[in-house]
Design a binder for these strands. Structure first.
Lengths: 254, 254
DNA sequence: CGATGCCTTGAGAGGAGTCAAGCACGGTGG
DNA sequence: CCACCGTGCTTGACTCCTCTCAAGGCATCG
């Protein structure tokens, strides 16, 4: 991580995204306002700026409250939180369409770092909040997004509290697979832009356990590795039952 | 758990909470509309009914979408989620003021069970959603509550992914202590209405580890037990550093 | 080609899980 | 009033999954 700071003012002058230009923005930028209608969209477009972020840049730091809110339009980033002694927990990976910084004026803000080159739409927090008041439907959309996030967090708590290493890895791979599928992005050779360390920190495991477990999946013929940063799920359904512990590891032990 | 079903229609006829009566409801019922103003409050009051729930009753079941939304006004309940083989993760304990069921028309709904006698304000989900549209400030309040929940979930993910058993227990006790403090409820002999199993399922530990760790805390003079369902934190600050791993267990090992 | 960073693999240790008694409390019924 | 359960909590002995420590492989990059 070169940790080139990105915030609050990037080296690159933000490319303004003019109102009429809105459709020129990557369409995914607007999934969160999707069918909100033309007025809402142009209002959103009027306060947004587009920014390109290099890989391994800090988008937000722990304990800091950023004056901006971001919506990722391309690339991948990680959200994380650490203990004083350095142990860290990755809270999630941001994919195109995801927001960053929405409610993070909360207890102990978190850090975010780009894993790849990332494109974001940036809003000044104040502007964005004003907009919510003027466009009620936008507020409702955000509430719905927040509830999705809560549902995902709960799933992850179940994983972290109760699943074995195999189940965690299987859940992780499938979750990524499904999220990319839902966004219409390529997932057949499943891209893994994050490092083994990131995966371990996301799943509450060590890097060695991640590596060993992936090796075991490969031995068992459940996945094949395309280099280090791409996996092929050879049997998604099998993987799905591994993830929930249904057909426990008995079969895998063979 | 006698699992007396509570939903969708309780045995007890819901006590209607008339508009003018709103102040008669337990004040905490209204913390979520707090300073929303008189109009909003009476609108809320007009669609609410008050219900008393016995201990160990199911308020919601996994995989079911309840037509109601609840706000707890007295007592404690647990929210949880299970794997097919029975392993369960407690996602949180609901205290007075907390909502139940807000976004739970989401992926794999969760179960909720009262731990003590509980009083709730019940809303029909549809009514509640209509209200949000009519009273924008209510929607904003809910968004803010959802963001609090997300922040708490993240803290819990860090706990589940990265903390030791001692740190988990310390975090749990302190978290409860602080939440009760914030609500102005008694927390000196800290009440623990949940069983050891519930605590274990919340912290991703077994019942034996919970028991042993509490015993160790007692030996170390960090807590004293008032029976099984009440604890006294003898040194909250010491506990606080235990919870984050600051002054690691080195001291405790002495 | 050495240096660096990331990943893999092995050997051994340890923290929490599992299995199994035993204890304490509260309820029930003779 | 007390013997008898049932349930939940504690404690001990042992196991095992994952972590820790350490070495080695394999790219990329100056």
């Amino acid at each position: 991580m070169n940790n080139s700071r990105l915030l609050p003012s990037s080296g690159q002058p933000p490319t303004s995204c003019a109102r009429v230009d809105c459709d020129a923005c990557d369409v995914r930028a607007l999934t969160f306002c999707g069918d909100l209608g033309h007025d809402a969209m142009s209002a959103v477009a009027s306060i947004v700026s587009r920014i390109e972020v290099p890989a391994h840049a800090l988008l937000a730091e722990e304990g800091e409250q950023s004056p901006y809110v971001y919506n990722v339009t391309a690339g991948t980033a990680k959200l994380y939180k650490s203990l004083p002694d350095g142990r860290t927990q990755v809270l999630g990976f941001l994919l195109p369409g995801d927001f960053l910084g929405l409610g993070d004026d909360r207890l102990g803000g978190l850090a975010a770092e780009s894993l790849t080159r990332v494109s974001v739409c940036r809003f000044r927090r104040r502007d964005f909040e004003n907009l919510q008041e003027r466009i009620p439907v936008l507020g409702r959309r955000l509430l719905s997004l927040a509830q999705d996030e809560i549902a995902r967090s709960r799933e992850q708590m179940l994983l972290l509290g109760r699943k074995s290493a195999r189940e965690r890895l299987a859940s992780f791979l499938l979750g990524l697979y499904d999220r990319l599928e839902a966004r219409g992005e390529a997932n057949d050779p499943l891209p893994l832009p994050m490092t083994r360390t990131d995966i371990g920190d996301y799943l509450g495991l060590t890097i060695e356990t991640v590596s060993r477990t992936l090796a075991a999946f490969k031995r068992d013929g459940i996945i094949s590795l395309d280099g280090v940063h791409a996996v092929r799920l050879l049997d998604p359904e099998r993987m799905r039952s591994l993830a929930t512990g249904d057909e426990a590891d008995r079969m895998a032990a063979c």
